[in-house]
Write a protein that binds this DNA or RNA. Structure first.
Lengths: 260, 260
DNA sequence: ATCACTTAGGGTCAGGCTGACTTTAACTGA
DNA sequence: TCAGTTAAAGTCAGCCTGACCCTAAGTGAT
């Protein structure tokens, strides 16, 4: 009656609450897609419909258990590929969620789960791969309102999405991550639209240009985007490091060494 | 032979590598203490000597397993109290470390461990409690050089400390956390010494004063620090929120709501 | 062709913040 | 009373920012 551990197959309901917490990996994947109302692009993310209890039928972040032979980031990548077909370039750890009330339906006998959540950015071209896969258990939702009025997202996933949104909005102001939403070449107006969609406010085009042209990681090409009904804008290219690591703004722990 | 899970008590060596990873909580605790060389204060942290394999005899971060009935932060606090006697005011999640090579001694049969690491700041008065506890399996080490020349710290803990140092140096530049190293009242020179010790460079006293007096969370008291052999400096007080949550610089996930 | 319209892209200007530096005030100890 | 030390306030030039203006270069309609 008072053993601390019990094998997973030899536990009754009251003992199961004493099992060590299990580990899961989930990912918040952001993409910019044109809003329904034919306006500016807005933030969307793919969610998967749960087919098991608890929260059966509700939408949840893609994720799954951590296996014994993969690192945390590898597990996130594998889960992403298996559940959504996506392989994001930008992938970074967000937070470890381990509260006791995460299920918010305190059902007796449910094993406690600690989720290590990653966040990712994908380009629209990558994002379309998901749509083509036709599985109606995976669908895009607006990042700011997903789960509103539908009984909410599963578990504490609405809260996790809000935290990821906060991180994205913060990090875009000091780190070079906006390019991960765009293709290899882009106009300054497209890049500005990314910032405006994420920050939720308009930016002065002239001041935006001044700051970007002063950024060495942004390189002007000699090509222009034709086809608009106005003066063709110049195309630019991002020439900085491709991943967040080992960028100076947030070095991956495994790349750090002591200060000399 | 191909079962994915096996009960903890029914596994042989080859099966044990297939066990789901277990969870541990560790904490990097920073305190400012006067350097041995009778100079400026420097960063120190308490480490625990391992009494079990692997890494028996080497120094490691205080920590322990996560039990089923406590949140991640509660587990960090409990472990801190049990191993070091400390109860820091400032405690925040740092990162989840889950690489496959964390033990760096790939011994057959050792179960894989994922560590969720917290970091904490304590005042010198709190820090002295540890010294009084007389347990020579717990001792203070310099944060920048702990493990150098002694065969290193256990596991990947040197790497974790470096990452925590990087976070501390970054966060002190934009968040109000330096006060957690000091008592309730302090002089501007004391506060400046905290910044200088962490950032590793001297700051202009006049400019430092100008910035601090423009900070509304810093309040001048009508008291002065007597006893020096010079003009007595005014004492100041920090009147902002006591914990990092729900400060605007890094809201705790559980305090976030959607943007309106 | 010409003109209205739209967006690209370059420029100006004032205010705020920063780093470097100077000056004065207040107290101690010889 | 004076030298020494630190506190605390002030000055000044440079840089960045936001707000705003103006011209360049295309398109489509008349």
């Amino acid at each position: 009656m008072s053993t601390v551990f019990a094998g997973p197959f030899g536990a009754n309901v009251s003992e199961r609450a004493q099992l060590p917490p299990s580990l899961a990996i989930s990912t918040v994947i952001f993409a910019l897609k044109p809003s329904r109302a034919e306006g500016k692009p807005t933030l969307w993310l793919p969610l998967v419909r749960r087919v098991k209890e608890p929260f059966r039928g509700q939408w949840a972040l893609p994720g799954g258990p951590l296996t014994a032979v993969e690192s945390l980031e590898d597990a996130a990548r594998r889960n992403l590929r298996e559940t959504t077909g996506l392989a994001p370039e930008y992938l970074e750890q967000l937070y470890a969620f381990g509260g006791l009330d995460r299920s918010s339906r305190p059902e007796q006998g449910a094993q406690r789960v600690v989720s290590i959540v990653y966040w990712a950015l994908v380009r629209p071209t990558e994002a379309e791969l998901l749509v083509e896969s036709e599985r109606d258990n995976v669908a895009w939702h607006r990042a700011d309102t997903a789960g509103h009025g539908e009984g909410g997202l599963a578990f504490d996933h609405r809260e996790i999405v809000d935290y990821a949104l906060w991180r994205l909005r913060n990090k875009i102001e000091y780190a070079q991550i906006a390019y991960h939403f765009l293709g290899e070449r882009f106009t300054l107006a497209q890049l500005r639209e990314v910032y405006e969609a994420i920050l939720g406010r308009t930016l002065d085009p002239a001041n935006f240009r001044r700051q970007l042209t002063a950024t060495p990681q942004i390189e002007a090409t000699d090509e222009f985007l034709e086809g608009g009904r106005h003066r063709p804008p110049r195309l630019y290219r991002y020439v900085g490091p491709p991943t967040p690591y080992p960028a100076s703004d947030h070095p991956h722990p495994s790349t750090l060494r002591s200060t000399p």
